[in-house]
Amino acid sequence: MSLHQSVLAGDRLALARLLTEIENDTPLGRNTLNSLFAHTGKAHLIGVTGAPGTGKSSLVNQLALYYRKPPNAAAPRRVAIVAVDPTSPFTGGAVLGDRIRMRELSGDAGVFIRSMATRGSLGGLAAATAGVVQALDAAGFEVIFIETVGSGQAEVEIAKLAHSTLVVDVPGLGDDVQAIKAGILEIADVLVLNKADRPGVEAAERALLGMLKLGHPTKRLIHHGQLMEDKLADVELAGLAEWVPPIRRTVATEGKGIPELAEAIQGHKLHLEKTGNWQRRDRARLQTELEDLLRSQLVAQWRRQVSEQAYQTVLDELLQRKLSPRQAVDALLNGRTAR
């Protein structure tokens, strides 16, 4: 049986091997992904990002437990988790520790957890994360959590990959100027205020609410000077064009607030489906992937055509300040390299 058939048949070891092949960007990995691609596009991809130590892994653990045992005897959903941690820029090594918080998921055949190192990628994900997610999608996981590295302000790649992005904040991380800066808060589809049993939770929620009022097109929702949020945001907004990210308080270590958070995520999914944004996001996501691939392929192709000597000559001239970087690119691309 080929790797592709084994993965589709639910062989977990084959899936694990495939993920390694994808991470190492081997021909086997690429070919198998090609043949699996037709089976993708069914999973709900949920991104989880936020500063280090905000409790992303614990939240993913709790949400996965919730999806495995939903209330009201609903059918459990198969859950995959891709947890990304940073690679050391000096040694190329990494310690991947997200599983520590996910021990309760062990022994459940409906859950698959994979740790990934960034291997030099910036932006909070690894270069192979999109491929790994596709393989898990094809393997039939219905919900896929993608946990980014502990992110600062600019690691927003996750929003391009996921359907729904959770941004996790905790009380006491910064003042309200942090909240209006561009970047990570802007990509939130659901804002999670974790460790909500800590002091300062009211102030943190006020700062986030203030940011939402400024940053999102919410005017029609401001009523008596109050932003109408929470339940309204989930249910009634699902029919409107604009989504206002709801804020949910959680205490992940105790499982508090998890059903409400899952409900908000579901609300966002419904919203995407009703407004056609699901399709639109999918299209934008695939376009990003296409362009990234195109870019790297074009560079690699071009690099094979130009002689190492010509390349080094231009680099030398650059070093001697005879050419500016732009002129150097011009020289290389327009063939004025064989001087």
Binding site: G92, G93, A94, I100
Partner: peptide, 20 residues
């Protein structure tokens, strides 16, 4: 030490069962 040797280390923490 393994990280510094360039390996990717998956660290799972305390009290793991053989099954885990």
């Amino acid at each position: 030490a393994l990280r510094d040797a360039g390996m990717e280390v998956i660290y799972t923490g305390l009290r793991q069962t053989p099954e885990m």
